[in-house]
C-alpha cells in the first residue's frame, strides 16, 4: 500500500492518491496519519534541497544545488528521505519546486521502481501544467490525470 501526494510551492497539497489492494490496505489509524507524515517530510526535503554534495569542491561553478544523497547523476529523485514506525517515505523534487512525496506502507523503498514511477508522474504533471487553463499550485482535479497515475501505480507496484 502506498500513499502518494503532490505538494505545491507554498506547501499546499494539489493531488493525493492511495494505492491499495484488497488485502493490502492502510490500517485506519495509519490512514489518518498519512497526511501528517507527509507534512513532516516537507522539512526534510527542503533541507535536502539546499544541501551541497560533500564530495564536490565548493568552488566549482556546478555547485551542489538540488542533489540527491544517493547519486551524483540526478537532481530530482531523492530516494528514501524519512521513515515513521516501519513506514518509509520517499521524495522527488521537480525543477519548479513541486514536491512528490510517497509513503510506502511496506517499509522499504525500491529505488528502481520508485524512480521510474516518479519520472512518469512528472511527465503526466508536465502535461497538466502545459494546459493553458491550469495554474501552478491549483489542485489537479483532472480525472484523466488521476486515472493515468493509478494505472501507472498498478503497473509498477502491484
Amino acid at each position: 500500500m502506498f500513499y502518494f501526494t503532490i505538494i505545491g510551492t507554498s506547501d499546499n497539497p494539489i493531488y493525493e492518491a492511495e494505492f491499495t489492494t484488497a488485502k493490502n490496505t492502510f490500517q485506519p489509524e495509519i490512514k489518518e496519519l498519512n497526511p501528517y507524515i507527509v507534512h513532516s517530510t516537507l522539512d526534510i526535503m527542503e533541507y535536502l534541497q539546499w544541501q551541497r554534495q560533500p564530495q564536490l569542491d565548493i568552488n566549482t561553478s556546478s555547485g551542489g544545488f538540488l542533489r540527491s544523497r544517493h547519486s551524483t547523476q540526478e537532481n530530482s529523485y531523492l530516494g528514501k528521505v524519512d521513515s515513521f514506525y516501519g513506514l518509509a517515505v520517499s521524495g522527488f523534487l521537480t525543477y519548479g519546486n513541486i514536491k512528490f512525496i510517497m509513503v510506502h506502507g511496506n517499509g522499504t523503498v525500491d529505488d528502481t521502481v520508485t524512480r521510474s514511477f516518479y519520472y512518469e508522474v512528472y511527465e503526466l504533471y508536465l502535461k497538466t501544467l502545459m494546459n493553458p487553463f491550469y495554474k501552478v499550485n491549483d489542485p489537479i482535479s483532472n480525472s484523466a490525470f488521476d486515472s493515468k497515475v493509478r494505472v501507472l501505480s498498478k503497473r509498477l507496484f502491484v
Binding site: 502535461k127 497538466t128 502545459m130 494546459n131 493553458p132 487553463f133 491550469y134 483532472n142 484523466a144
Partner: peptide, 10 residues
C-alpha cells in the same frame, strides 16, 4: 489544442 483540457464551465 495539444495539452488543453477545457474547464468545466467552458
Amino acid at each position: 489544442s495539444d495539452f488543453v483540457e477545457l474547464p468545466m464551465d467552458a
